[in-house]
């Protein structure tokens, strides 16, 4: 087929357009949060003392970090779904969540006695944490990769990693409502491992899955 003939066929198909990129991302995010919520409430649920915990700065600080992570990874993710994306400026925002966490760690080390540090770091839920954050996040990751496939990423591995970080942030936000280990030392260790699992999964599966 000659190129001019191909163009005739493409032009005749002008009216049937696909879902816009912003609409696809809005849908994916709503569905991702819904799926994470459903998995969280059916498998774990919030901790029983959540009303009292909500008075504690350490408890609330977990949400500051996890929501900051999800929000800062989502920007580069949506941008990377376009082929001509230059996400470098947005990627700088990825430093926000680690910086907040580092500040939290410094505060924790300053106000608590050194002999409590290791107990706080090890916590009581480390295994639950590294199991359930990936479990809650896997559905959201799949939905975000689906939206990525609707787009046209020219850096699929990086985009997949951003999908994993975003899904990890969403999953960790839900998980934080369950977990009774509120120290930034615990969050920095176990949440990081769990979110890294999702990030690696996103990065490794993305190229094949979103191929266009």
């Amino acid at each position: 087929m000659e190129t001019d003939d191909l163009i005739k066929a493409l032009a005749a198909d002008a009216r049937r357009s696909r879902l816009s990129t912003p609409a696809a991302w809005s849908g994916a995010v709503l569905a991702a949060v819904a799926v994470a919520g459903i998995v969280f409430f059916s498998l774990l649920g919030a901790r029983p003392d959540i009303v009292g915990a909500a008075q504690s700065f350490r408890f609330l600080f977990k949400f500051v970090v996890t929501i900051a992570l999800a929000a800062s990874a989502f920007g580069p993710l949506t941008m990377l779904s376009r082929p001509d994306a230059d996400a470098r400026a947005l990627m700088a925002r990825l430093a926000i969540a680690p910086a907040l966490l580092a500040a939290g760690i410094i505060a924790e080390l300053t106000i608590s006695a050194p002999d409590t540090w290791s107990t706080k770091l090890v916590g009581t839920n480390s295994l639950v944490c590294v199991t359930f954050i990936p479990l809650i996040g896997i559905g959201p990751l799949a939905l975000l990769l689906l939206a990525l496939r609707h787009g046209a990423p020219s850096q699929p591995t990086l985009a997949g990693a951003m999908a994993g970080l975003t899904a990890g942030g969403v999953a960790a936000t839900f998980y934080a409502a369950h977990c009774t280990d509120d120290s930034p030392l615990f969050v920095a260790t176990w949440y990081t491992i769990a979110i890294a699992v999702l990030t690696a999964l996103g990065a490794l599966t993305s190229r094949r899955f979103v191929h266009w």
Partner: peptide, 25 residues
Amino acid sequence: TLLAIHVKRHTWRRDGPVAPWLYAI
């Protein structure tokens, strides 16, 4: 490239330039 432009045309930002998007594809 023309086929990819066609099936991925919703990824172009209508307020931006078109050439960088075309060449990226």
